[in-house]
Design a binder for these strands. Sequence first.
DNA 1: CGGGTTTGACCCGCGC
DNA 2: GCGCGGGTCAAACCCG
Length: 242
Amino acid sequence: MYWENSSYSEYAVNNFPLKSIFDLCSSEDMKVRSLGFMDLLGVQDLIGPPFLEIMAAQQVSTPPSKKIDSAEVINQPATPNFSSISTASSEAVNDEPVKEDDREENQQKTKKQLKPKKTNQKRQREPRFAFMTKSEVDHLEDGYRWRKYGQKAVKNSSFPRSYYRCTASSCNVKKRVERSFSDPSIVVTTYEGQHTHLSPIMPRPSLCGSHLSSPMSAFGMPMQRTPAHYQQSSSSSTTIYR
DNA sequence: CGGGTTTGACCCGCGC
DNA sequence: GCGCGGGTCAAACCCG
């Protein structure tokens, strides 16, 4: 881990003017939407907390700049200590039902062991859930332990994308972390899969002390840890976290 | 020494 | 078929 846990919250609270995702996306940042952002998002409604569904209903007005076979939803997962702006979309939703078993199997297989014959359709993916966080550090503390297993340069972006896997042996949750190329202060984190274990919650004295025991969602989404930063969301999805 | 990171190579899907 | 880009592997390296 290489973030300075010196003062997350200070960044979030003091250093960044908070913007809503719509502010971001509607202006110069269309690419965030039309480019990778939508592509890398995917979420099944099974993971959708109520607010997700609500937001999805409100937020399906996604410009089909790319193949978007899923609804965009805005999510506001509470990042521990940043202002966060989040969106999520689902690819899995529209995929025809896949037996969990198959999916598991596919997953178990490593790259080299991929079954030669693929099904008629696209490779099944784990439900994915992405959100945007205004932060200066790439790797947000979310209560789980992650091991970086790769990094790639992203086309159209000067920032690399990092790939992390949950270190828990039985848990194959992955996440990708990249910065928005159009707004470097925004970190886009995409979670894939669901944790099969509880958060190992690492004590981090430097941060919010007693609030650390606050929960993670079942999906490994960072949850708000400090009431002081409790996020607010309006029905119009303009979110400001403090 | 164990666990995490780096990084080049490799594989795969997809568009042309 | 080919090239490109995304995603993953794994050896080497680093660090506590």
